[in-house]
Design a protein around this nucleic acid. Structure first.
Lengths: 194, 194
DNA sequence: ACCTGAACACCGTTCAAGT
DNA sequence: ACCTGAACACCGTTCAAGT
């Protein structure tokens, strides 16, 4: 007889709703921004009742935290890939990847670094994912990994610089035009160290 | 007979509702954050019907834009004051004031640099106020004012650095403790220039 | 274990009507 | 010119009830 691979049921509305909701939320974020994100609309799009999401998330903030965590995971792999292709100039490579991610996914980037992150407990999925992304940044900027949890001032300076560029860019506060060239030019004017 | 100074009417609900709403919104922002801001609650607090605000603002975003503009005005004077007291080290002084403002008013700071700013038309009150605050920053960092509207790369680097520190701080992404000392330490590691 | 439907207390926005 | 009250189309969240 057939293996017990769970077949999709006729009345389509389950599968794994949790993943469906997160995936759909990411799509809404890209297309219409954060203010278009509603639990009820998400449920509607998944052809499920408006109370169904509460079987998988305590409240709306929990869903947003899951989305932000997924964002941090993608962010981390984007930085890893970028650093691998240009190991000679780590600050330039990581800075370009950092800003490019923010530019490509402004609403997601804002959600990732929004007030939910500040409220996240240290054990949570969101905190873990953010921590992992940060580890990529630090590790490619300097040879040694994070030590003792305390962030070296130089790493912090580099982080603040690229983060500031990214947020100012998606706020429309930077002069228009191709952002990659601008970021490269600005980063070239900065030296970090003793 | 008495001068025609407009006396407050018996049924309290007018005066100038516009200013009352903005002032009240700032207070809510400080106390309960952005998600607690509702037009209806604001109207209730001002003892006015929930439709009354629409006589002064086209929609909620217009009210938020007015609040953000007021934030930029206070931000500008905070930076001006700080730069005046420590003219020897402009980057340190402006950086400290920049970060201190964000730390003292996180919700307002987030609103100021939120998506509303990216959407603001260039003639609007919000865009003007943001531009004025930016002029203070550039003017104290370098001797000469903005030239030709194009931002020098060095000024941009300095701005991105302090802005990044400020946003990372209010996101809870920086190590705890007294932020002033951390910011001063980090800024001391950075050199900007040719 | 997961989902539904009704219910509650909110929203933002519009609009006729009042003064 | 500014405000009110009713109305509409939404929300997030809870909860009994179903399978």
């Amino acid at each position: 007889m057939d293996m017990a691979r769970p077949k999709p049921r006729d009345d389509y509305h389950h599968g794994d709703l949790r993943r469906t909701l997160v995936r759909r939320a990411l799509a809404v974020l890209e297309r219409d921004g954060a203010e278009a994100l509603s639990l009820r609309a998400l449920a509607r799009a998944a052809a499920v009742s408006h109370a169904a999401p509460y079987n998988h998330f305590a409240d709306k903030e929990a869903l947003l935290a899951a989305v932000a965590a997924e964002g941090f995971r993608r962010f981390a792999t984007a930085m890893t890939d970028a650093a691998a292709t240009a190991p000679a100039e780590p600050l330039a490579a990581i800075g370009a990847a950092y800003v490019a991610f923010a530019y490509a996914h402004p609403a997601l980037f804002r959600l990732m670094f929004g007030p939910a992150l500040a409220r996240a407990d240290s054990g949570s999925e969101l905190a873990e994912a953010a921590q992992a992304a940060y580890a990529v940044l630090v590790q490619t900027l300097r040879g040694d990994p994070t030590r003792a949890g305390a962030l070296a001032d130089d790493g912090l300076a580099a982080w603040a610089l690229v983060h500031g560029l990214a947020t100012l860019l998606i706020d429309g506060a930077l002069p228009g035009g191709e952002p990659g060239a601008l970021v490269a030019r600005v980063l070239r004017r900065v030296r970090i160290g003793p």
